[in-house]
Computed example of a mutant assay.
Amino acid sequence: MFRRLEPPQKPVQFTIDGEPATANEGDTVAAALLAQGVERFRTTPVTGAPRLPHCMIGNCFDCLVQIDGVPNCQACLVIAKQGMAVTHQDGPGDMELV
């Protein structure tokens, strides 16, 4: 679906669902996941339908993922960091306040 036009200049290593992945320094998590070929970021609470980013500016919440154990993170607004652990989110995620 998406692919990089050039290889990452300054690669950042992280994981998605426990699998190694690479982002370019400055990429958002959403951009990095799309470049890795990830086909779902979350599932809807009612039907379980897979969702991918829609707006890429933080308005739609279709890109919610869990980052380093924190649920409901908007992947389009978070910059990928070295060693970050990203997992897809099923349903509404953990709504418990920390």
Rank of each mutant, 00 (worst) to 15 (best):
M1H: 12
M1N: 08
M1V: 14
M1C: 11
F2Y: 10
F2S: 13
F2C: 10
L5C: 01
E6G: 00
E6D: 04
E6N: 05
E6K: 07
E6H: 06
P7F: 01
P8S: 13
Q9Y: 00
Q9N: 01
Q9I: 00
P11V: 06
V12S: 02
V12I: 15
V12W: 00
Q13H: 11
Q13D: 06
F14S: 04
I16N: 07
D17T: 02
G18M: 05
G18T: 01
G18V: 02
P20V: 01
A21I: 06
A21W: 05
A21T: 05
T22W: 04
T22H: 07
T22C: 11
A23D: 07
E25H: 01
G26W: 12
G26L: 15
G26H: 09
G26Y: 13
G26D: 09
D27R: 07
D27I: 15
T28H: 05
A30K: 03
A31N: 02
A31E: 11
A31P: 00
A32L: 14
A32E: 11
L34D: 02
L34M: 14
L34Q: 02
A35G: 04
Q36Y: 05
Q36T: 03
Q36I: 02
G37Q: 08
V38F: 11
V38C: 13
E39Q: 15
E39P: 10
R40P: 05
R40G: 08
R42H: 11
R42L: 06
T43Y: 14
P45F: 14
T47L: 15
G48W: 07
G48F: 10
G48C: 05
G48T: 01
A49C: 06
P50S: 14
P50G: 14
L52A: 10
L52H: 07
P53Y: 04
P53N: 04
H54Q: 12
C55V: 12
M56H: 12
M56W: 06
I57N: 04
G58N: 10
G58D: 08
N59T: 11
F61Q: 13
F61W: 12
F61G: 03
L64A: 01
L64Y: 08
L64T: 06
V65S: 01
V65G: 03
V65I: 09
Q66S: 09
Q66I: 14
I67D: 04
N72K: 05
N72R: 10
C73G: 03
Q74A: 03
Q74P: 01
A75N: 03
C76T: 07
C76G: 07
V78M: 11
A80W: 04
Q82E: 15
Q82A: 14
G83Y: 14
G83D: 12
G83P: 12
M84F: 09
A85K: 13
A85H: 13
A85L: 00
V86E: 03
T87C: 04
T87K: 13
T87P: 01
H88R: 09
H88L: 08
Q89R: 06
G91M: 05
G91F: 10
G91K: 07
G91T: 02
G91P: 08
G91I: 03
P92Q: 10
P92A: 10
D94Q: 04
D94S: 10
M95Q: 08
M95H: 04
M95L: 15
E96D: 03
E96Q: 09
L97I: 15
V98G: 04
V98P: 12
V98H: 09
V98F: 10
